[in-house]
């Protein structure tokens, strides 16, 4: 089916029911190795529309690598990535992002020398195709600023809108990460440890924000805090040494002996030892 046909089909309400049967994101048999190190072994993963899935696993399991494989920062050695049923394996990260695949980074990747507002406006400008304009002053379109403020408002960042990102406390910067991703109006959102490096007194705000995101967005969250995982996720995928160990509902994962052995046990060792 041609691309325009697909888009037309997506927009018609008759086809919506059909479209919802197509997963928002699908990873099929993806492999990736750097020399002897295999970071992904035949990984299969599906996100339905509006999914709330957590990706967990011990350090070095390849969670961030998987996000990089999905977003096109890394190219898989073999296997496929599908976005809304379309094979995007050969697409650049930028093209994937333009088609509704957004991510946040485990370590902040922000425009530190720009204001929070400008950070978000950049993402909006790219999405609306306005960034090709060489002549009109940036920020002369009220619609862009209004939308940016909407996103900032929903993340309680409005009061920081005009401050430079590098002047914000780290926890607030983590919220800017999410604000930029939301400004892309994603269909699929990959959150790579959104509360990493944030003191627990502030991490609640971030996790509240994550919990209240648009239910239509399919979300994959990488998170170490098991309380968060079990509160947020409807389903969990456990990754060990680049391979999917198991997946299921939080209750199933909690009851799974293998998961306890490789992951929860390790966590327990760490907290007790």
């Amino acid at each position: 089916m041609s691309q325009t046909m697909t888009e037309q089909a997506m927009s018609s309400s008759v086809a919506t029911a059909f479209a919802s049967a197509v997963p928002a994101l699908e990873v099929r048999g993806v492999n990736k190795s750097f020399g002897a190190l295999q970071v992904a072994r035949d990984v299969n993963l599906t996100l339905e529309r509006g999914a709330r899935r957590a990706l967990i696993g011990p350090n070095g399991a390849g969670k961030t690598s998987l996000v990089n494989l999905i977003t096109g920062v890394l190219k898989p050695s073999s296997g496929q990535v599908l976005l809304g049923g379309e094979d995007i394996t050969s697409w650049s990260s930028a093209k994937r992002a333009r088609r509704g695949l957004a991510r946040t980074f485990q370590i902040n990747q922000l425009f530190r020398g720009l204001s929070v507002l400008e950070n978000v406006c950049l993402a909006i400008g790219e999405r609306r195709g306005e960034s090709y304009n060489l002549w009109r002053p940036a920020g002369s379109k009220a619609a862009v600023i209004d939308e940016a403020l909407d996103h900032l408002n929903s993340l309680r960042l409005v009061d920081d809108a005009l401050r430079l990102v590098r002047e914000l406390p780290y926890g607030r910067q983590r919220l800017v990460e999410i604000a930029i991703a939301l400004a892309q109006r994603p269909k699929v959102l990959l959150l790579d440890e959104p509360a990493a490096g944030v003191p627990s007194s502030e991490s609640h705000l971030i996790l509240d924000v994550v919990a209240s995101l648009d239910p239509d967005i399919a979300i994959l969250i990488i998170e170490h805090d098991m309380d968060v995982v079990f509160r947020f996720a409807q389903s969990i995928t456990v990754l060990v040494a680049g391979a999917v160990l198991t997946e299921g509902s939080p209750q199933e994962i909690l009851a799974d002996e293998r998961v306890r052995a490789v992951y929860l046990g390790q966590e327990a060792d760490r907290s007790h030892g």
Binding site: A97, L122, I180
Partner: peptide, 23 residues
């Protein structure tokens, strides 16, 4: 000072993020 100029600054500030927002 155009939106295009802003994206140049964005590329200077953080090229990884620019790829990630579809630039």
């Amino acid at each position: 000072y155009s939106p295009f100029g802003q994206t140049l600054t964005g590329i200077r500030e953080n090229v990884r993020r620019m790829h990630a927002i579809g630039s």
